[in-house]
């Protein structure tokens, strides 16, 4: 599947220990896919909190991944097992109000040395998509991502921007 076509937003939380060149590698994929993909490097996956995962969904990610080191390979002993428990807790929280638990996915990276983080992300994105966009995505008014200078000038309290000589007559 072409990873550019699914139309979904993805958030990747991942352990930095997986890829020493993660900074370059993730940026290359972020550049390629734009705002549809966001990476959040963690010093260890054990740093993840259920709240991070919920906030990612709340802020528009259709699918959120937490990518950890393979079992038994955590540099800090049990960071990945903690991340697994917190992901499971977050899944329970979102299913409480009817959101599919699949939207949060715990992913154990292949055995070390694992492939680069962009490779892992590409493999995940290339899988068959089983989730729909967030149910509220279409219901809310979309905020333009970038407002041009002219638009910003004209969009003054919903009206056309006053000319300089008119400004002193406006009610504040």
């Amino acid at each position: 599947m072409n990873i550019k076509e699914d139309g979904l937003s993805h958030a990747f939380f991942f352990c930095q220990q997986l890829d020493s060149a993660q900074d370059l590698n993730r940026r290359s994929l972020e550049k390629e896919l734009g705002l549809r993909i966001r990476f959040f490097p963690l010093p260890c996956s054990g740093r993840i909190e259920s709240l991070h995962l919920l906030r990612a969904l709340e802020n528009g990610a259709d699918k959120v991944y937490i990518i950890t080191c393979p079992e038994g390979a955590c540099r800090h002993q049990e960071g990945n097992t903690r991340a697994k428990k917190r992901a499971a807790f977050a899944q329970r929280l979102i299913s409480e109000f009817g959101l599919e638990p699949d939207r949060l996915e715990f992913v154990e990276a292949p055995a070390l040395p694992s492939p680069s983080i962009d490779r892992v992300a590409r493999d995940l994105l290339a899988r068959e998509i089983r989730i729909a966009p967030l149910p509220w995505a279409g219901k809310e008014k979309k905020v333009p991502k970038e407002i041009s200078r002219k638009e910003r000038r004209d969009d003054y309290r919903g009206e056309k921007a006053p000319r300089r000589d008119q400004r002193e007559h406006r009610l504040l």
Binding site: E49, L54, E96, W136
Partner: peptide, 19 residues
């Protein structure tokens, strides 16, 4: 603080889901 943020997040998303 964490649990408060989690509950608030759940309630906000639930409200958005139900319109």
């Amino acid at each position: 603080e964490k649990e408060t943020a989690l509950l608030a997040s759940q309630l906000r998303m639930d409200a958005r889901r139900e319109g």
